[in-house]
Design a protein around this nucleic acid. Sequence first.
DNA 1: TGAGCCATGTAAACGGTTACATGATTCC
DNA 2: GGAATCATGTAACCGTTTACATGGCTCA
Lengths: 187, 187
Amino acid sequence: MSVPEQMVPASYVVLGLVRIGASSGYQIKRAAELSVRFFWALSPTQIYTELKRLEAAGLIRGRDDPRGDRQRRTYQITVDGERALRDWLLSQAEPTVEWRDEGLLKLFFADVLEPADALGAIRAIRTRSDRLKRRFDETIEPAGKTLEARGEHRFPWITARFGNDFHTWVSDWCARLEAELDNEHDN
Amino acid sequence: MSVPEQMVPASYVVLGLVRIGASSGYQIKRAAELSVRFFWALSPTQIYTELKRLEAAGLIRGRDDPRGDRQRRTYQITVDGERALRDWLLSQAEPTVEWRDEGLLKLFFADVLEPADALGAIRAIRTRSDRLKRRFDETIEPAGKTLEARGEHRFPWITARFGNDFHTWVSDWCARLEAELDNEHDN
DNA sequence: TGAGCCATGTAAACGGTTACATGATTCC
DNA sequence: GGAATCATGTAACCGTTTACATGGCTCA
């Protein structure tokens, strides 16, 4: 207990998902897929190693909880874990952000291309956001809404709305730029 | 030449920046800081190793070009390099995107906090975007505008406007949400 | 009976960052 | 004379992904 342990944001994702009800590694994997994966991706490998580290640090407590002959280990957050989660949530340092977008990279270098192909670079970003927006409409927002309707948590839905609104905004921004450049070409 | 070599997006950033006029590693570092760094960060280490790899692959050609006694190596893109850059720009695969945002993560878990502290999580995202928007206003957009005014490239400016508009949008989205939640609290 | 999901991991590789080192030039 | 900038790198580490492996359960 009170083992300091180096915590990275991914640690808090796993800790937080255990806190709000995902008890096994597999459940965390599925919950992440329906929620945080668009602004913090987690691989199964990472989830299982993080669970072991959190348990060693005393922030979660695990027990073997098989379903028939199928092995399973479930976890719950400890008092130390609650405190660690709150401390992180309340920490005043500017939250880190990292964005790696091949689409914007291609847009940046689009001067190298013919005008028609440069337009393709914009369209690629728009198409991608349209696809991702559909994911938010069809699965991520409904999942958040269900939680909210059950009176459990509201911020998962709010965050899903952010993702949805963001992709709508990107799509519109691209459409406006395409129209602008199209117009030039016609003159 | 025509060495296939494994190219990652970072390779194309370096190749592209050489293409549009940054000739030495240090110049690439500075150019990246004023342009692509917000949607694809590059460390100096990466730049110098990437330059060597690109040269070994025949995509750029380098020569020692010291300034006085101060060493310097400058590069220019080759015909193979031009083709590799165009092939990447024209590739039809959906452009990759990766977003890791500690701010949205904290928002997602904000149910754990008191309403007043949850509001702090939103404000943190807004404050960060306000700061980044200032960076776009003060340095990144002007740098792109200068290029455009000189009739060299227009897409660096367009991309800078995307970044600027994006942070404006995020800030507004957060302000609306804060107002919404504030209103609840008053009732 | 076989596909798909539930469930948990290990080993190796990968892309990228941090810390550090060196030395010249410019400009106040 | 000293700080800031120009200029290039190496070694070690870090977080994450990919590929792979194992096996049980569910349901058409």
